[in-house]
Amino acid sequence: MNDLNQKPRLLSFLQEELKIPSASINLALNDPQLSYGSFPMLLWRYGLISLSQLDLIYDWLDEPGHSCNF
């Protein structure tokens, strides 16, 4: 399991801006199919975020300096 105490900026954005619970984030982080860049899609596929939240995540990732590294 990933340590959310040392979370990348994406995880901070998910928790602080979109108010996604850490339990939901951990569920997707522990998926065996997790690969670079697939994390937002896993959240959506599990039904943990809405399509509009998925759009917000990708908009955020498109901003300079943001990434989906874990």
Results as ranks from 00 to 15, higher is better:
N2S: 10
N2H: 08
D3I: 12
L4N: 02
L4H: 03
L4C: 13
L4G: 07
L4I: 14
N5F: 12
N5E: 13
N5R: 15
P8C: 05
P8G: 12
R9H: 10
R9S: 11
R9W: 01
R9M: 11
S12T: 13
S12V: 11
S12N: 09
S12L: 13
F13L: 10
E16R: 15
E17T: 14
E17H: 06
K19L: 10
P21A: 06
P21F: 03
S22L: 04
A23W: 02
S24D: 15
S24F: 05
I25Y: 00
I25G: 04
I25T: 03
A28W: 01
L29K: 03
L29A: 08
L29D: 00
L29I: 08
D31E: 15
D31P: 01
D31Y: 01
P32M: 10
P32E: 11
S35M: 15
S35G: 14
S35A: 15
Y36Q: 15
F39L: 15
P40M: 06
M41T: 06
M41C: 08
M41Q: 10
M41S: 09
L42D: 03
L42C: 04
L42Q: 04
L43F: 01
L43C: 04
W44S: 15
Y46K: 10
Y46R: 12
Y46C: 05
G47T: 06
L48M: 07
I49W: 02
I49V: 11
L51P: 09
S52L: 14
Q53L: 12
D55T: 11
L56G: 02
I57G: 01
Y58M: 07
D59R: 14
D59K: 14
D59V: 08
W60K: 04
W60M: 08
L61A: 05
D62Y: 05
D62F: 07
E63G: 05
P64S: 11
G65K: 03
G65V: 12
H66Q: 11
S67P: 00
S67Y: 05
C68Q: 09
N69L: 09
F70K: 12
F70I: 07
F70N: 07
